[in-house]
Design a protein around this nucleic acid. Sequence first.
DNA 1: TATATACCCGAGTAAAATAGTCAAGATTAA
DNA 2: TTAATCTTGACTATTTTACTCGGGTATATA
Lengths: 140, 140
Amino acid sequence: MKLTTKGRYAVMALADLANFNKANPVPLRDISFRQGISLFYLEQIFLKLKKHNIVRSIRGSGGGYILFKNADELKLSEIFFAVDEKVKTINCNKDSKKGCNGKLSKCITHNLWDELDLHINSFFENKKLSELTKTQNKKL
Amino acid sequence: MKLTTKGRYAVMALADLANFNKANPVPLRDISFRQGISLFYLEQIFLKLKKHNIVRSIRGSGGGYILFKNADELKLSEIFFAVDEKVKTINCNKDSKKGCNGKLSKCITHNLWDELDLHINSFFENKKLSELTKTQNKKL
DNA sequence: TATATACCCGAGTAAAATAGTCAAGATTAA
DNA sequence: TTAATCTTGACTATTTTACTCGGGTATATA
């Protein structure tokens, strides 16, 4: 059970962005360099972030990305959703609409996984991007 | 972010086992049939469960598996650990012992993932196998 | 003792997911 | 006009997952 790099990099990159977002747009090149993430891969990720209105882009020389809303209004759940990092611990209900594993009834553990999903999602729902940059700033 | 089938099947199989564990050992063949899990795969899983003293085996005709301890004493975290379903949301610290991504310092988000791991693990720590079988019994 | 029923265990493999790369473009500031 | 930067879709290598398989060993019971 682990996150994909997409979810992880998205959060890292946005935290970086929030730190340098004071006045000017931040180019991916900079984020790539500072965070050690492939530029190509970042492009892919930011495309999704843009589509979901997490960031706004400015093209051309001197361009880059800026946050669409303030870091203290941006929930991690929004970020994960944008890059398809969905918390869905299992995949019952694949074949039939009613039950799990092709059977008619729910599997014994079905409710458990639902609870787990809720438990994990609550973590992301209650966490704002600003909480990361704050701890970062304290250290500096 | 999702569980592997190993962790999921392990919990399903043990919940099934707990339901039929009254007097006699339960053969994997039965669990395989009832839960719709491949027998070969179950063998692999139960080998691990046995090594970690989650279950005890009785060989030969009339044999099978029984729970090593009572279902209300068995934490889900023990089960997941036994089948290598480790909750480790990311893998910082792979190269160097000090930092993440080959850098010297921790990455911005490092503490976040630690928190997340703790959050998820607490769910499994506080959940007993008996809590699954109970809801099952209510329905019957 | 023969036989069927089970567990035991290591090795192998197909499919899916992940992680990342690449090429060819479109905009725009300087 | 040129360099910087975002835009987009397609492609690929690697890793992980989810099994499968074969050839055992132990034991109850007929």
